[in-house]
Design a protein around this nucleic acid. Structure first.
Lengths: 349, 349
DNA sequence: CAGTGGATAGAAAGCGCTTGCTGCGAGTGT
DNA sequence: ACACTCGCAGCAAGCGCTTTCTATCCACTG
């Protein structure tokens, strides 16, 4: 029923071996033979059987990209950049033509592991994990073990925007969340703010922790005392920002600024402030993180920290493909850039 | 080196066949035996070899999701919903545990075909194509041919937010872009607008065409004459909206409203208007399409057409998994809902 | 007590492809 | 003219798993 290599071989009057070699292009085949084979492939409309090929060759052309939330542009942008480096190699046979696939873990540790196992099953050529990790110890250990196994099996593992998992053989491109957060809060402090609310992400995420730590470092360095009640945990989405802001306002109406875990949260915060009759930044300043495309369109435009998501993703993709040297020590830190815009100003008297 | 089924069998003192049956759970195995096998699997840390399994069983557990732009929440939301229905079946062996992978075509017809071929290679269990199709005839034919081959090979093909490709055996959930666009423009006309600019998407996309046609239908029905110079083509992104708006303003400063191909474009339009010193909606009304999450946060919030992306995606996912009956005739139309918000108002005198 | 059938387990034949090794004919050095 | 490369094609042995068919063991039934 379906066309196999053997059919093509028969039609081209050569052995299956030759057809295989023409298709893989890693063995000398006379031009005339190649031509004949290619014609047969075309006429028969032959499509390689991936599983069979992977089985025999003990490798596959799958590259997995794990993201926490595919509906969030933060991940979408990275995934897009990674994929462009992987799938985009275009026509050429040699090396290229990999199937870059993104897997949505939804932030669930189990799904993350499931996907890693599934990719391991498929003998993926490489795996890129993006975004913060969950800090639950057993889970972290399980993931680390899985990653180690993957690298041992020859799968290249790259972490993009995620802290290094020591001893796994993975390459890490981590974001300097702490430093970025610190500079952001320093900016606010510099404007004169002293009562800053902080809307964090989910409590057990590395990203959440690092950003919060950066914020607190800045406060501590400036000698500003911090009320623990001014920090609220939530999710990395708009709704969370909205609700957390109302909560913060309830706890401390005197806040002059709100620092959000990311831009979506910040937007939610803006909405809540506006509905509460507060002006931005006259009454309350707001700051986000990531500098996603929509942040500049907010009114007023959002003060935030720009993370070079696309660049980092592209680099991760190249490393995963073996087209770029991993950084020394298999770890590199990517800095964010403070973007001062309209949503932050001097506090009201 | 790597653990195989045979190793597990040896350890559990059973035949490979038995191990396979335990793992696949579709054949009676005595509880005690099963137990022993499972223990061996665990102790050896065995991971099934996907390619080998797919080869032998002539099926795979891959499900492909094709999107035009993974960085765009429009696709992210759909992909997320689809994936939730596919990958989320959780622990159970039976039926579940599929690897839902999203493939980013970047809107490129070639990449789309490449991915389809790659998925065909992998003998994917199902494929979901999201978003508008390119209207280039040869390409459309090539895609249709590919889809037909896929369905013939037993791969379930679902189109989500994409017009039916006749004769391919695919199931289509199409969005009523035309109707939605028409109702949107009717709303604007009802407010009294007569000079409306239209910022379209890329010219050769079905989505672009349908939305534009809906817009024009409304105009025609209201007897409003349309200046072709009031339509500008661009891309489905913010930047395009920004630039197109400036261009429209140049061509016709007297426009009282701008209808954008989607929400991102609309946001760009808002930015351009604001920078031009025009108020929204007092001077110019703006409308978008899709109702993405950020649209409600715009200032003023965006009048738009809500597309039930998550619902449609979930349904597409279920159909792809064979967990829901395809609609009669293998085609269903999903309507959009007009969301009237702050960005549209009566035109200035 | 032989006969029967249900429940399990095993043997073995592939699934379609890759690749190490062998084979063969033609060009080359002396 | 002879042995010797060298370039190219074929043979055949798997890769690790699934699944059909067969064998076995028991518990019953008549």
């Amino acid at each position: 029923m379906t066309v196999t290599l053997a059919d093509v071989a028969a039609r081209a009057q050569v052995s299956p071996a030759t057809v295989s070699r023409v298709l893989n292009g890693n063995y000398p085949v006379a031009a005339s033979t190649r031509e004949r084979v290619l014609r047969a492939v075309d006429e028969l409309d032959y499509v390689l059987n991936g599983p069979a090929s992977s089985l025999a060759a003990a490798t596959s052309d799958l590259v997995g990209i794990l993201v926490n939330d595919i509906a969030d542009p933060f991940f979408g942008i990275m995934a897009s950049a990674i994929q462009a480096e992987i799938g985009g190699t275009g026509g050429g046979r040699a090396g290229g033509e990999r199937l870059a696939v993104v897997c949505n873990t939804g932030g669930s540790p189990e799904r993350e592991l499931t996907y890693l196992t599934l990719l391991q099953r498929q003998r993926a050529a490489a795996v890129v994990l993006t975004g913060g990790a969950v800090e639950d110890a057993p889970h972290a250990a399980a993931v680390a073990a899985k990653l180690r196994k993957l690298t041992e099996a020859g799968t290249r593992v790259v972490l993009c925007g995620r802290p290094q998992a020591a001893g796994t053989g993975a390459v890490a491109l981590t974001f300097d969340n702490r430093g970025g957060a610190r500079r952001l809060t320093e900016h606010l402090l510099g404007l004169g703010h002293r009562r800053l609310g902080y809307i964090a992400g989910p409590e057990e995420r590395t990203t959440t922790r690092h950003r919060l730590e950066g914020h607190r470092e800045a406060l501590a360095a400036a000698g500003v005392e911090e009320d623990p009640r001014w920090t609220v945990y939530g999710h990395y989405d708009r709704r969370s920002g909205y609700e957390a802001t109302l909560e913060l306002l309830r706890r401390e109406p005197g806040l002059t600024g709100i620092v959000a875990a990311n831009d979506s949260v910040a937007l939610g915060a803006c909405a809540a402030l506006r509905e509460s009759g507060l002006r931005i930044p006259e009454d309350v300043s707001v700051a986000g993180f990531d500098d996603l495309p929509f942040s500049i369109d907010a009114v007023p435009s959002l003060t935030t920290v720009r993370l070079p998501l696309a660049d980092a993703g592209a680099r991760a993709g190249r490393i995963a493909m073996g087209r770029e040297e991993p950084p020394p020590g298999d770890i590199a830190t990517v800095r964010g850039e403070l973007m001062v815009r309209g949503s932050s100003g001097t506090p009201r008297a």
